[in-house]
Amino acid sequence: MQREVAATRDFSRRSLTRLLRDYGIAIALLVEIILFAQFSPYFLTAENLVNITLQVSITAIIAVGMTFVILTAGIDLSVGALVALSGVIATSFLKSVGSFPVALMIAMLGGLGVGALAGFIAGVFITRFNITPFIVTLAIMTISRGIAFMYTDGRPIWDLPPEFAFLGSGRVAGIPIPTLAMMFVYGIAYVVLNQTRFGRYVYAVGGNKEAARLSGINTNSVILWVYVISGVLAALSGILLSSRMNSGQPNAGVMYELDVIAAVVVGGTSLFGGRGSIIGTFLGAMLIGILRNGLNLVNVNSYVQMVVLGVVILLAVMLDQLKKRS
């Protein structure tokens, strides 16, 4: 009899750890939502949910590119600076070239092009000259930020055509455009990572670069492309963000790289490469975004917020370790 009780207890404990292990982040997210709903009557309002997805969209889009990069065992520290650089480039093009629809096209192309170029340069240095991604993207980060300041003389670019604001502030069927953009990017990324050759190669290169090469994968080209993707998505976020602010801010996106890396890692992607998922990244980005929103909603002191954020990141990563050990 006694033994039976012990066995059931053992079983329930084991199933609980398994539950935590397999759906840890989803559960953490759920707990978080329930907690904040208890403490703030405004948390679950339609308008706040729109607010959350709107806020999360910026970092979540960058996190997609970062997921690709981290899956190859790399890192991209330049994304925050690229948000600023692409934002100021796009907004300045918007002001200087022609009338609205054409100007918007050119501005988008310019902004995305800068992101792609920065990613390409990072990729070339990493693959051709064999320099670690950390150093290369650190350099690209300061260079990009520097150029953003030089280009604008440290001042924001403002007084933009009012139509531009639609990109960041407009809604289609009640859903904000940045939120739609985020859903679109995640959809594409999911297909690319899970259903295409390139996606498979990304996992393989991160899992074991030399084995991937000897399996006939052009590892350099895979690595080059993930940095281009990361740069382009950072630029897309930069353009959406500057539309929301109706200005190009050279000081935008400061420390975004850390938020984004945290989202990716909390989402279960290993910094050593080869393991992770795009859905995990989405949940990670939501977890962190909702945390920031909820703590502001219940008016938690901002010093305390920093500590809470750090603790949550540690807990999430610990959960992930638990998963690997089993």
């Binding site: 050759r197 498979r200 393989a204 899992g207 074991n208 084995a211 000897l214 006939g216 393991r275």
Partner: peptide, 19 residues
């Protein structure tokens, strides 16, 4: 070290060179 991607599945390792 040089042949397999250890934490990929049997399926993914077999088809890797001829997707």
């Amino acid at each position: 070290q040089y042949g397999l991607i250890m934490h990929m599945s049997v399926r993914e390792n077999v088809t890797l060179s001829n997707l």
